[in-house]
Amino acid sequence: MSTTDTERVGHLKVLGLNDDEIKVYQHLLRTGPSSITELGEAVPDRERSIDATLGGLVQAGLARRSGSDHSRYLPVPPDAGLEAMTLRRESELKQARIEVLNAYDEFRRTVHNESTTHLIEVVTGSAIVERIHQIKSGVQREILAIDSPPYYIGGPNQEEIDQLRRGVSYRVVYSPESVEVPGYLTENILPCVEAGEQARVLPDVPAKLTIIDGAIAFVSMSARDTDVNRSLLIIRPSSLLSALIGMFELCWRNALPLHASVGAEDDRLEPIERRLLALLATGAADDTIARTLGISRRTFFRYLERLMNRTGASTRFQLALHAARENWL
């Protein structure tokens, strides 16, 4: 189905053509080569002269003179002209962005002159989810996160999987409470890890944190501080943001790796044992592990006892050390 005239008008405006140029160009596309007189009569309701309008189309690379006396105009293949117009519009948009940023900076210095208020933004209520999407959608390189319930958004994290596919890197430290949320491990964490997320687990996380490209962060309370999150802090470049990045890196260094499947294949381990070790590393409760594996508590303890006997471990901590040493984690 061909693009309608109305839709084409919108596209041509995006490229920077004015109303008169669009009308004349549309007429040329419908009728072919036309003289200045014919175009002037066919498009009478113009704000500019027909000569100026045609000059704009020629400059844009969308039309040219034709005929032995160069008295007629016709459309031309627009490839080169469109490329030049696109680059010009991109340059104009970049300049507009700079002007808006400068205008806001001037506002902050003169009208709203509290020097630190722009560094921290408090978002509450229904606006939280919208701001999170708005900030995360602008990511270019990397997202660092400390993950803990309660969550603003439920269900699978398709947004992260899409960003991983386009080259954005994710490093996430999960709290044990994250794994305890019903379905969160299998529906959210593991699909993201399989898509390329680097994940680790820390027994005690200091806050719930997301850092975008090292340039902006949002912080809220973790499950150990509150059952429901009703506010979100957005932190912009400052010593506070630097401290939050340092806090994340400290948590990352002290956390245990979490993989979608554990280590390399090892004929001493059954697949379910490798999965059980991965879940143990998350700090998940016994019931959660059994439910995720689809086995009973009794069967879970039987596997656990067999692993501990095989490794000579008398505690789960010793089992974890052995698994790490054998590269099972």
Rank of each mutant, 00 (worst) to 15 (best):
T4H: 13
V14I: 14
D20K: 02
D20V: 09
I22A: 03
V24M: 07
Q26G: 11
L29N: 13
R30N: 13
P33S: 06
E38D: 15
V43E: 06
E47W: 00
E47A: 14
I50W: 07
I50R: 03
D51A: 12
A52N: 12
L54R: 06
G55C: 01
G56Y: 05
S66M: 10
S66E: 14
H70K: 13
H70L: 13
G81D: 07
L82P: 00
T86W: 12
E90T: 09
L93H: 06
Q95K: 09
A96P: 01
E99F: 01
V100E: 08
V100C: 04
E106K: 10
T110M: 05
T110W: 09
T110E: 12
S115I: 10
I120S: 07
V122H: 10
S126E: 15
S137H: 06
G138I: 00
V139W: 02
V139I: 02
L144H: 07
A145S: 15
I153G: 01
Q158F: 05
D162P: 01
Q163T: 04
R165K: 14
V168C: 01
S169N: 09
V172T: 13
V173I: 13
Y174A: 08
P176F: 04
E177V: 04
P182T: 12
G183T: 06
G183K: 10
Y184V: 10
L190N: 03
L190E: 13
L190D: 05
P191Y: 09
P191Q: 10
C192N: 14
A195M: 06
Q198D: 10
Q198N: 07
A199H: 08
A199D: 05
A207C: 11
K208T: 08
L209A: 05
I212Y: 05
I212P: 04
I212W: 04
A215D: 11
I216M: 11
A217F: 02
S220F: 08
S222H: 07
T226M: 06
V228Q: 11
N229A: 14
L233F: 11
P237H: 10
S238Y: 02
A243L: 12
L250T: 12
L256S: 15
V262Y: 03
E265L: 08
E270A: 14
I272N: 04
R274T: 06
A278E: 14
L279E: 02
G283P: 01
R298K: 10
T299K: 11
F300D: 01
R302M: 04
R302V: 12
Y303S: 04
R306C: 02
T315E: 04
R316N: 12
Q318C: 00
A320I: 15
A320L: 15
H322N: 06
A324N: 03
A324K: 13
R325P: 00
E326R: 12
